[in-house]
Amino acid sequence: MLTELVTMIDGSALQRGALFLLSQIRGFPPIIQTVHILGVTAIMGSTVLLDLRLLGVALRSHRVSELIGRLLPWTWAALPLMFVSGIVFVLARPQRYAMNPVFRAKFLMLLPAVLVTLTFHLFSIRDREFWETSPGRRALGKAVAAVSLVLWLGVVMAGRWIAYADYLIPVEE
């Protein structure tokens, strides 16, 4: 399915358009990458900070329920921004990304990262104090936060490693 998708994108108007933007407009790649990195910044300042709060190491005077309501909207706003700023690069060179094992690893971590954060948020929407009401819930929150933290930091680091995949896996020719 992935191969078909790549074949479909390759040579399409969408692919040529993305490639044109990236190769012909001076400064376009670093500006779009910066937008992507500012999205990462929002993730760090929202989901990651919330995880640190749940683990009990940061922002202890802030209530968990308050932080969920205030911070997580930043996560949900950042993700579409990062999707748009990221997909430009994928559309321009679909082969390169589809074949890249680090790119795959990034999305294998991103999917559960988003699902964990979303599930966490939904429980809090249904019952605002859900994650604070009992020692058991707080312990569960800590476990979720630890998983979320590892996944999100993994996604960010993998994102930077995409360009260096050949350091990890020798290129087969």
Partner: peptide, 25 residues
């Protein structure tokens, strides 16, 4: 000349985005 460069760079990205993400609050 080694994987140390991307390794340090990926930590650098995590640190700098966390720096800005935290001070933004």
């Amino acid at each position: 000349e080694s994987a140390w460069f991307p390794f340090l760079e990926s930590i650098h990205v995590v640190a700098s985005t966390f720096l800005f993400g935290s001070i933004l609050m």
